[in-house]
Simulated assay, not measured.
Amino acid sequence: MSTFDAAPSALIVHAHPEPRSFSSAQMTTAARSLGEAGYRVDILDLYAEGWAPVLARDEFPPVDGPFKPQAEQLRAVEDGTLDAAVREHLDRLLAADLLVLSFPMWWFSLPAVLKGWVDRVFVMGGVFGGAHGLFDQAALAGKRAMLLFTTGGSGESFRPGGAFGPMDDFLFHIHRGMLEFVGFEVLDPVITYGPARMTDEERAAALEAVGQAVVRATRKPIAAPRSG
Rank of each mutant, 00 (worst) to 15 (best):
F4G: 06
D5S: 13
A6L: 15
A6R: 09
P8Y: 06
L11Y: 14
I12M: 09
H16A: 15
H16T: 07
P17I: 06
E18K: 12
E18S: 10
S21Q: 09
F22G: 06
S23K: 00
A25N: 03
A25T: 01
Q26M: 14
T28C: 14
A31S: 14
R32M: 12
R32P: 12
S33E: 11
S33F: 06
L34E: 03
L34A: 06
D42E: 15
I43A: 15
E49I: 14
V54E: 15
A56N: 15
A56W: 03
R57D: 01
D58L: 08
E59F: 00
F60R: 06
F60T: 04
V63M: 13
V63L: 14
G65I: 01
P66L: 08
F67S: 11
Q70H: 11
Q70I: 07
A76P: 05
T81N: 08
L82G: 09
E88G: 09
H89I: 02
H89L: 08
D91H: 15
R92M: 08
L94S: 13
A96W: 03
D97S: 13
L99K: 07
L99V: 02
V100I: 08
S102A: 13
P104G: 12
M105Y: 05
W106N: 02
W107D: 05
W107I: 02
S109C: 10
L110M: 04
L110H: 07
K115G: 02
M124A: 13
G125T: 00
G129E: 00
G129S: 05
F135H: 06
A138M: 14
A139K: 08
L140N: 05
L140I: 03
A141Y: 09
K143F: 05
A145F: 01
A145C: 06
M146R: 07
M146H: 01
L147W: 00
L148Q: 04
L148C: 11
F149M: 05
F149E: 02
T150P: 03
T151A: 05
G153E: 05
G155K: 10
G155D: 01
E156C: 07
S157A: 13
G162L: 04
G165L: 12
M167T: 01
D168L: 06
D169E: 09
F170K: 09
L171C: 06
H175C: 10
G177W: 05
G177H: 10
M178S: 10
M178N: 11
L179H: 00
L179G: 02
L179Q: 07
L179C: 07
L179N: 05
E180L: 06
G183A: 04
E185H: 01
V186T: 11
L187S: 15
D188H: 08
D188E: 13
I191H: 00
G194F: 07
R197Y: 11
R197V: 11
M198A: 14
D200L: 14
E201D: 13
E202C: 11
A204P: 00
A204H: 03
A206Y: 00
A206H: 00
L207C: 15
L207A: 08
V210C: 07
Q212V: 11
Q212E: 13
A213K: 09
A213C: 03
A213Q: 10
A213L: 03
A213E: 08
A217T: 02
T218P: 07
K220S: 09
P221D: 13
I222Q: 10
R226D: 04
S227I: 12
